[in-house]
Every structure is written in C-alpha cells, then in structure tokens.
Amino acid sequence: MSTEKQNEFSQLVDPHLSSLYSTALRMTHNQNDAEDLVQDTLFKAFRALDQFQKNTNFRAWVFRILVNTFITAYRKSIKQPQKVSYDDLEEFFLYKRLDETVSLQETSKEEFLENLFDDDVKDALESLPYQFRLVVLLCDVEGFSYNEIANIIDAPLGTVMSRLYRGRKLLQRQLWNYAKKRGYITDDFKTKS
C-alpha cells in the first residue's frame, strides 16, 4: 500500500529516473552497479525527503545524493587522478586537428561529428578520469548550470569550470584518436603543409 510520502516521492523522482540511471551507468561502467547505485540513491533520498525544501531544485538535490553515494561506494576503488598530460590540450583541439586534415576537405567537420558512433562518444566519455567525466556529464548531457554542478559535487565554481575545460579537451583528444583508429580519417590523411 502506498503512503502519502511515497506518492509525493514518486511524483518528484519519476521525471529524473532515466537521467539518474544513465549517469550512474556512465560512472560505474556496468548495468548491475548502476542499478545498485540508483537503488541506494533512491533509499537515501526517500529517507532524507523531509530535508528537501519544497519548491526548490529537486533534480539537483537528488543528483547530489547520487554523486555522494557514488563517491562513498567507490572511494576505495577510485584512484587518484592519473597523471594525464594536458600539454597538447589547446582550445578547439578537435576542430584544429580536423582543420589540418586534407581528407576532410570534402566532408564538413559537422558531418564528421554526425558520423561518430554512439559508442565512440560513450567510450570517450567513460575513458575520462571520474572527476572530469562527472562534470561533463552533468553539464553537457544533463544540462545543469555551473552553480548547480558546484552544489552537486560540493566544489567551488572555479573547480567546476577547470574540470569541465580539461574534461572536454580530453574528450576531444579521445574522439580524435577513435577517428584515426577507426579509419574515419582515411589513409590519405595527411597534415596540410
């Protein structure tokens, strides 16, 4: 039998279930762990529902619980960020690489993006160190604002922006590598002289 609290919770959380699960999947890399993570998040959110202030941002509130639950559960297995090289991570990295390739002259760069497989994008996202992956997911996929993300991951705005910047550049580098590996950039690819 459903209680009033249950109905209220259900109404609040239902529109965000897909987002929560999808983010959990990108963070944990597998379906079972993602289900567990969302389940734990739902338990915690339900128990803490009294602390949620009505008519405030439920979506950000429940995502904050998801992120905390993820970090608590994976604290031991989350490695410190690997030493990633940011040396060649200039602004417009992917655009500039594509611009340098002769073989792309005939197809547009936008077409190149359209032709990427869903899996390329997902793999590239999942390859990012988790701190970077999280902010890119929250911003680009889930559409949260910088302030909301700062609140969700409990970090200053500057940290959100720098992680987002680095995360996106790493993502672009990864997409560029896939493109080369999978032959989107054809064999006659050469750098403009």
Binding site: Y95, E110, L116, D118, V121
Partner: peptide, 17 residues
C-alpha cells in the same frame, strides 16, 4: 563546431539504454 559537438555528445549519450 563546438556547439555542434556539445549537441552530439548530448544526443549520442542520452538515455537510450
């Protein structure tokens, strides 16, 4: 291009699964 990339990331990693 960057706007398009953002859109593609959103579209290709959306909630299909």
């Amino acid at each position: 291009f960057e706007l398009k990339l953002k859109e593609i990331i959103q579209k290709k990693s959306s909630h299909k699964e």
